[in-house]
Each structure stands twice: as structure tokens, then as C-alpha cells.
Write a protein that binds this DNA or RNA. Structure first.
Length: 470
DNA sequence: ATGTTC
């Protein structure tokens, strides 16, 4: 694969074969070692009908289902552009929420074990069923799928700021519950308010560095402050929706005369029954993901109130696995686009009309969860941001789960983390080993490349005090 | 990511 370095942290793959647009990869040479497979996927995505601009890859790009994780692709809705479930991923609306406590790390040092024990008891995690909230039945699940975080807050599980500081005000419009299969609903019923497994986590963190005090203050964080970061998605419900709609599109594609270089890129026009059906189901999963993070926040707040008398305010909640209909100027014309972000975070620039009033002038908060035991970042969107205002989403795995578990035992890893001052409350020691930091890229390098490429700006760096994992 | 291979 020939990569032409256009400028630092920006590489280009010239269109060849069936590519309709170039590939654009934001990264350093080091971050792209062993990236052959994911760059092949960047090229494949560039062949999709209606794609505009480029097939983009963020610095944390790695191999995924059809599309690379860390990929951004926008299609022109009014020019036959397609939507593809593979461009969103199986964990629809997987995302991150950051809450800031009204206390500093040193103030809760002695109480931290009790806080972690409390969280360890109330946060459902790991594969399979379990959740903090059991919907009364299908009709209540449907209210969650339509209302998202707004419904959870209306039911007493949050406060108004939880909605103003959440992407889309907590609710994605146009959720179509009829497109969520019975099987997807069945899986979703038992997992409302649960973390899941793999790289999902709930961490108690401390702000270790502030790069821009004005922006940090506006977002609601300061040096030394305790924060809670929640990283999770739409669990089995989102997974089932992706499975169902990939299958439907795989069958329907030929009727639209669409051929793709990889069946995992199954897609149909946005403006087709199958496209609308998927986007309706995806919106329902997006609402489920937000409600999920809202309910985990609610449970966390109860523990913080009980153990240390602290309050937690929402900094922001943003998804990094979603397709959205957005208007952007491409080649000098305003166009309605379906922007697929898969393992990529929307990063609206300062002044964007969709941002909350109190932080609009500073840009959109972007939340980057690091690898367990390392660091996480609070970033902000920038003027002139490329890739339809998108940036990275995390560290990005480089070692298979199996390979990771061979490097260290869960017990040894727990000992190492505790020795480094990080309390761990894992559900499974085997899963813990699979998440060893060595299995991931260096989040500091990923963030430096994202900032160097002009996609975002750093606001603060957070380090873990305690981690709750599946 | 995922009732971790319908």
C-alpha cells in the first residue's frame, strides 16, 4: 500500500482500482506499523457508492468488521449515497461519558477503597444479562428506545444538565422500534444499565494535567479534581440490530446494483427502505446506549453520595460508533451527508449551533478513554477540523485477546495495578489479563497524532485511581 | 463489541 505523506500526521492513498475517493490516514509512521489490513479496509470503503471527500482513518485505526475501527466515511444522501451497518459497528452507540466530582483526589484518598467496593457491588458488568434497571416490559423498553437518556432522567434517574451536556440532548430522533427485532429487544430487556465486557470500563480518575484552563473550567474540570469516566455501549441489543440489518442489506444489495469488495461492507442507499429501516433501528440502539450510560451514572452518584458526600456533574457524553445525517460543505457545495463514524469521535468546532450554550464558544468536548491503567483525555473540537469534524476514539488494540492473556496472568496484572496505586474491581481475572495495557497502542501517541493532524486540541489528561471492569 | 461459534 503506497502511503504519500502530505504533511506531518497526514498520509494519502491515491485512488486506484474501484476507489471513488482517496484514502486519508491521520497518523505517524510508528502508529501505522502492522496496519496493512486496516489500510486495505480504508481502500475498500473508498469504493462505496456516493462516498465524498475521502475514506478517512484516525490515528487509532485497526482492523474491524468490513470498515476499519477508527474510520470515517461520508456519503451524499441525495446522490445515491449508501448507509452500511459495518460503518457503525456491532456496538452501536458505544461511547464515553465523563462526570466531574465536587472534590479533589486527596480528599477521597482514604475513602477510595469503600467507593470502589460500593461501585464493585452495584455496577453490573461482564458478558450476559444483568442491569441496574429492569424495564417493566416491552412497552417500557420501547420508551427507552425512543427517549434514551431523556426517558431515564424523566423517570428520576438524573438531572437536567445530564441532557444539555449529552450529544443530541440525550435523545436521537427518528428511532423506529418496529425495526428492532424481537430477539434484539429480548436481549436488551435484561441489560439496561450494564457495562458489558472487553475494553468497556467505569473508572474513578483524577485530573493530572490541564493544557487549557479556560476551556477546562468551562467544561467543568480542574487540576486534581476527581472524575468518573464510563465507557460502554448498547450491549446485546445493538449487536443483534447490526446482525439483523447486515443480513437484510446483504440480500437487498444486488437489487440496487451495488457490488462491494467485501461482503462485510453490505449497504443500501440511505434513501431506500432498507437504509431507513437500519437508521431507525440504529437510532433506537443509540438511545439505549445513552440510557445505559445515564443509569450507570445514577448508580455511581449514589455510591459517591453515600461514601464521600460528593456530587457528580456531567462534563459530556459522546458516542464514537454512529452514523449521522449532517450537512457539510464538500467541493464548495452544501450537501446532506450520512457520516459514518466507527471508532471515531465527532468533534464539532467552536461556535457550532448544536453545541450547548454554555460551552459553544469552546468547541465540543471529546472524551478519549485510554487503556486500563494508563491515561484518558479530554479534548475539544477545532475550527477547520478535517474528516467532517472527527477525531480518534481511544488507544486501539494491537494484540489479540488470546495473545494478551499469554503475556500476564490476571492475578499478576491486578497486583501490578494495585502496586501502581490503581484499585481494580474486575468481574473476571481472565478478562482482566486480556485487557493488559501492552495489548493496546499508546494513547498518548494517538492523542498527540490527532492534535498534530489538526483534528482536535488537548484540554486535560486524566489518570485512573480505580477501575471497574467486566 | 457479542448469551465471546446459530
Amino acid at each position: 500500500m503506497e502511503l504519500v505523506e502530505e504533511r506531518p500526521f497526514r498520509f494519502r492513498i491515491e485512488p486506484h482500482g474501484d476507489m471513488r475517493v482517496p484514502g486519508v490516514v491521520f497518523a505517524s509512521r510508528e502508529l501505522l506499523e502492522d496496519a496493512e489490513q486496516s489500510l486495505r479496509q480504508v481502500v475498500n470503503v473508498a469504493t462505496l457508492p456516493g462516498i465524498v471527500g475521502a475514506s478517512y482513518a484516525m490515528p487509532d485505526v485497526h482492523w474491524g468488521y468490513g470498515f476499519p475501527i477508527g474510520g470515517v466515511a461520508a456519503t451524499a444522501v441525495d446522490e445515491g449515497g449508501v448507509v452500511s451497518p459495518g460503518g457503525v459497528g456491532f456496538d452501536i452507540s458505544c461511547g464515553v461519558r465523563l462526570l466531574a466530582a465536587d472534590c479533589a483526589g486527596r480528599e477521597i484518598e482514604r475513602a477510595l477503597p469503600a467507593v470502589m467496593d460500593g461501585l464493585g457491588q452495584v455496577i453490573p458488568r461482564g458478558a450476559g444479562p444483568g442491569g441496574v434497571w429492569k424495564p417493566s416490559g416491552r412497552s417500557e423498553l420501547e420508551r427507552i428506545l425512543r427517549g434514551g437518556s431523556r426517558y431515564a432522567v424523566e423517570q428520576g434517574h438524573g438531572e437536567e444538565r445530564d441532557l444539555t451536556r449529552c450529544e443530541d440532548g440525550g435523545t436521537v430522533a427518528d428511532a423506529d422500534v418496529a425495526q428492532v427485532s424481537g430477539r434484539a429487544q429480548e436481549r436488551g430487556l435484561g441489560q439496561v444499565g450494564s457495562l458489558g465486557s472487553a475494553n468497556h470500563f467505569l473508572e474513578v480518575q483524577q485530573v493530572a494535567e490541564v493544557y487549557d484552563e479556560t476551556v477546562a473550567a468551562a467544561f467543568g474540570v480542574a487540576l486534581g479534581q476527581v472524575c468518573v469516566m464510563v465507557h460502554c455501549g448498547s450491549r446485546g441489543l445493538g449487536h443483534q440490530i447490526c446482525t439483523d440489518h447486515v443480513r437484510a442489506m446483504d440480500w437487498a444489495m444486488a437489487r440496487y446494483g451495488i457490488t462491494v469488495p467485501d461482503r462485510q461492507l453490505a449497504c443500501t442507499p440511505v434513501d431506500s427502505p432498507e437504509g431507513r429501516d437500519y437508521l431507525g433501528a440504529m437510532a433506537a440502539a443509540a438511545n439505549y446506549g445513552r440510557a445505559n450510560r445515564q443509569l450507570l451514572s445514577d448508580a455511581t452518584r449514589r455510591i459517591f453520595r453515600r461514601e464521600v458526600g460528593a456530587r457528580l456533574s456531567l462534563v459530556y457524553d459522546v458516542s464514537h460508533n454512529l452514523a449521522k445525517i449532517e450537512t457539510h460543505v464538500v467541493d464548495g457545495t452544501r450537501r446532506r451527508l450520512c457520516v459514518h463514524r466507527k471508532g471515531a469521535t465527532r468533534a464539532f468546532p467552536p461556535g457550532h449551533p448544536e453545541l450547548p450554550n454554555d460551552i459553544r464558544e469552546f468547541g465540543q468536548p471529546v472524551l478519549i478513554p485510554g487503556t486500563m491503567g494508563t491515561a484518558s483525555y479530554l479534548l475539544t473540537g477545532v475550527t477547520g477540523g478535517d474528516a467532517f469534524f472527527s477525531t480518534c476514539h481511544g488507544a486501539g488494540r494491537v494484540m489479540s485477546r488470546h495473545a494478551a492473556a499469554r503475556t500476564i496472568t490476571g492475578k499478576d496484572l491486578r497486583t501490578r495495578l494495585e502496586r501502581d496505586g490503581i484499585a481494580v474491581r474486575p468481574k473476571s481475572l481472565r478478562s482482566l489479563a486480556e485487557e493488559t495495557p501492552e495489548a493496546y497502542k499508546d494513547v498518548d501517541a494517538v492523542v498527540a497524532a490527532s492534535e498534530g493532524a489538526g483534528l482536535c486540541r488537548t484540554v486535560a489528561r486524566l489518570v485512573p485511581l480505580g477501575v471497574v471492569k467486566g
